[in-house]
């Protein structure tokens, strides 16, 4: 059995950033609080291997995000300090509007492809880790990633907003 506190100490900063990129700086601390509570409740399930423990925590974070997207963000007192630090010290670069066009292009991809791009390029996960987190075969992740980049390259080489609009029309 792994050590839940050791796993949290090693990964909470990355988890917070992962959540901030998905749900925003204001709500991320609350979801992180949920993630930590769930991790403690399942302390017997923490993998011994540090990398596996990290992916186990990201899995909890992913499921907690699903709840948050359903509007179930629970305001936690524990999160107030982190929220206060965010407001007090401000976010780090990139600024909130940097990369907006590229983000729009990513968001215009079919969601399974978009999430692979986010996990690789925003969160620094390897394709093998993405496969584990998304519970998809590694070969599928590799082909989806290649397809995603092919689509992004095409979108960004032409007028990005126009191609986003076209893609949304097709997929929407």
């Amino acid at each position: 059995m792994g050590d839940v506190l050791k796993a949290l100490d090693a990964n909470s900063a990355d988890l917070l950033q992962y959540l901030e990129r998905r749900i925003g700086i204001t709500d991320a601390p609350d979801v992180l609080s949920d993630v930590m509570t769930i991790a403690w409740r399942r302390t017997g399930d923490v993998p011994d291997d540090p990398e596996q423990a990290r992916m186990w925590l990201f899995g909890i974070a992913k499921r907690s995000l699903a709840n948050a997207h359903r509007g179930e963000v629970r305001r936690a007192n524990l999160a107030d300090r982190l929220r206060w630090l965010a407001y007090d010290q401000g976010p780090v670069a990139p600024a909130a509007d940097d990369g907006l066009t590229t983000r729009d292009c990513i968001a215009a991809l079919p969601e399974p492809l978009a999430e692979i791009v986010r996990l690789v390029h925003w969160d620094g996960l390897t394709l093998a880790e993405v496969a584990q987190l998304e519970e998809v075969a590694p070969s599928t992740v590799r082909s989806r990633y290649a397809r995603a980049k092919e689509m992004l390259r095409a979108m960004l080489e032409e007028e990005p907003l126009a191609s986003v609009a076209r893609l949304k029309q097709r997929t929407g």
Binding site: E20, L85, Q89, A95, D98, W122
Partner: peptide, 16 residues
């Protein structure tokens, strides 16, 4: 370009 498109996150400070 994809890496640079990541939304802003909070600063990784000693306080945080």
């Amino acid at each position: 370009e994809l890496a640079a498109s990541a939304p802003a996150t909070t600063a990784n400070t000693v306080e945080r």
